[in-house]
């Protein structure tokens, strides 16, 4: 199935929210929107999803609007006073957002706890979590990884949005590649790599992993490009932070027409 139009539409909605709010974190959302689409459009109702990299909130809000979990009138309040949609997800506002995030390193422990609960209750549910590659610097990611392995949480499916950039530099240059597949494999995860912008491949990858009830927690290391789809943002650290000018917004929309045909 071709997801190009959907990818363009969701990106367009992300840009619209950021431009309207004059807010940053655009590159982060464009980096992982395809991963979130591959999960949230296709997971079963009882499965849970935690966006551990909470700074990609506009991607989460956009895809949850697409699935019907966030009404359109809420989207228009993004980043404004008295909103339920701040720059990082808020607690207890939407059933589809089980945990507020924004401080890194919280998602994997939470998702491991949810997966463990399903095991205790003998329920056949999947616990999804999306982390950034920079986030794997956090010690809690490693604590939770070992917990998931020792508790045989094969119903845990963790994604890493591996765009190679973090807060103030390249991941490789800071603490090294803490998102390296071989590290997580050595810990005991069943790891696959995938193109993080190919929704079909991502879907195929997690659906295949979900059937493998072998006691190993799953990880999909998704190769991504920060700012994907907008040429001047792609692979540029500053688009973690910057809002768009009017001219940049217009240019970005042109890019979406060219790249996604919308």
């Amino acid at each position: 199935m071709d997801y190009k139009l959907l990818q363009g539409k969701l990106r367009n909605n992300i840009l619209k929210m950021h431009y309207g709010a004059n807010s940053g974190h655009i590159g982060c959302s464009l980096s992982c929107i395809d991963i979130m689409t591959a999960i949230l459009k296709f997971k079963a109702e009882g499965d849970t999803f935690i966006l551990s990299k909470g700074h990609a909130a506009t991607a989460l809000y956009t895809i949850l609007h697409e699935t019907g979990a966030i009404p359109v009138e809420d989207l228009s309040t993004f980043y404004k006073n008295a909103t339920t949609l701040p720059a990082h997800p808020a607690p207890l506002k939407y059933a589809a957002i089980p945990f507020a995030t924004g401080s890194l390193g919280h998602g994997l422990p939470l998702a491991a706890g949810i997966a463990k609960a399903a095991k205790l209750k003998k329920e056949d549910k999947l616990s999804f979590v999306l982390m950034s590659d920079g986030e794997t610097n956090e010690g809690t990611s490693w604590e939770a990884g070992h917990f998931a392995v020792s508790n045989k949480l094969d119903n845990l499916i963790a994604f890493i949005d591996r765009n190679g950039l973090q807060g103030f530099g390249n991941t490789q240059d800071i603490l090294g590649d803490t998102a390296a597949p071989k590290l997580w494999e050595a810990m005991g995860f069943e790891v696959v790599e995938a193109d993080g912008h190919d929704i079909g491949k991502l879907l195929e990858a997690w659906q295949a992993l979900a059937t493998r009830k072998n006691g190993k927690p799953k990880m999909i290391v998704a190769r991504t490009v920060k700012g994907k789809g907008i040429r001047y943002m792609e692979d540029r650290m500053e688009w973690h932070y910057l809002p768009m000018t009017e001219a940049q917004y217009a240019e970005a929309q042109l890019d979406l027409q060219v790249n996604y045909g919308i």
């Binding site: 939470l110 949810i114 463990k116 616990s127 917990f147």
Partner: peptide, 25 residues
């Protein structure tokens, strides 16, 4: 199996506990 030794990893212990509590425990 409802007694869990989360190891010497207290931060994860609390995160895991929150995850389990969100599921009714």
């Amino acid at each position: 199996d409802r007694f869990i030794n989360a190891g010497v990893a207290e931060q994860n212990m609390i995160g895991v506990a929150a995850g389990m509590a969100s599921q009714g425990f």
